[in-house]
Design a protein around this nucleic acid. Structure first.
Lengths: 146, 146
DNA sequence: CTGCCTGCAAACGATTTGCACCAGC
DNA sequence: GCTGGTGCAAATCGTTTGCAGGCAG
């Protein structure tokens, strides 16, 4: 799955989102977003920080955390959770789903086109904007090991 | 939503699971499970601990954490995650789905029978045992407030 | 009787916060 | 120029761990 994400698009989205919401567009946020968008795994905030430091050695860890949080608020990234460990981030905006290993607790992306157009529940008291399906199970590595 | 869950069923499940896996069946585990099963929200480990202390003032927080973890291992509870805060537990074993508020980050249960029999992906390298759908959106309280 | 479980307190790691300075608008 | 973002270091919060005694099998 080595397709190249169009980073320029992400940068544009960021620009628009910042302008719309009156949020200053800083270099740090731009780099954090690009770094995140370039990855297909689900990096932790710390992972992102370390990757960002390659290009910007002076960013503080705190800023990485804050920038990620801001990006989530702007709708340009998603924060996903992972029992037993730290939060993970994902810049994928296209719909996709997750395989969560019940043993090693790792999270894998999975594309299941058939699940991409589920009907959203019409709950009046909750406005649904998006969804994803979390499959639980055992990954290959853990299956082998047991 | 004040219906009474059949706690005896949960206790039986616990007994069977403990025997099967050779895990000692302690009072603490029983009480933790009953406490968790009696709730419809998604309590934190700490929430569970406080609720358990009403009946067993001497349980330590550590034990609550460990018992919850054990129950997850036994398949009698599920640990769910909640960005920005602590892990949450759920004793519901029947399939259900979640509404996650993007604003207050609270998690609500939702029953959507139509989503209960999705086809599991036939990925050879990942053995899927269960799934749930996470809907993201804005809950009533947050919608009103903004 | 033996081993796992429990309780306690301290350790740990991820994330947040307060404050002074600097950059975007 | 004003507002809000950044960097630093310390604080905070949830969770885990090591060890001594107790209970389930």
């Amino acid at each position: 799955m080595g397709r190249r994400p169009r980073e320029s698009t992400k940068a544009e989205e960021l620009e628009v989102a910042c302008r719309t919401l009156g949020v200053p567009l800083t270099i740090q946020r731009r780099v954090v977003l690009e770094t995140l968008a370039a990855r297909d795994d689900h990096p932790t905030a710390d992972d992102v920080w370390e990757a960002v430091r390659v290009r910007m050695p002076d960013v503080s860890r705190t800023t990485a955390y804050r920038a990620l949080d801001t990006l989530v608020g702007l709708g340009l990234a998603v924060k996903i959770c992972h029992p037993g460990s730290s939060a993970r981030y994902d810049a994928k905006t296209r719909r996709h789903h997750h395989l969560v290993c019940a043993h090693c607790e790792r999270v894998f992306d999975i594309d299941v086109p058939a699940l991409d157009k589920l009907a959203l529940p019409n709950d009046k008291s909750f406005e649904v904007t998006d969804y994803s399906v979390h499959f639980r199970g055992v990954c290959a590595a853990c299956k082998e090991e047991s």
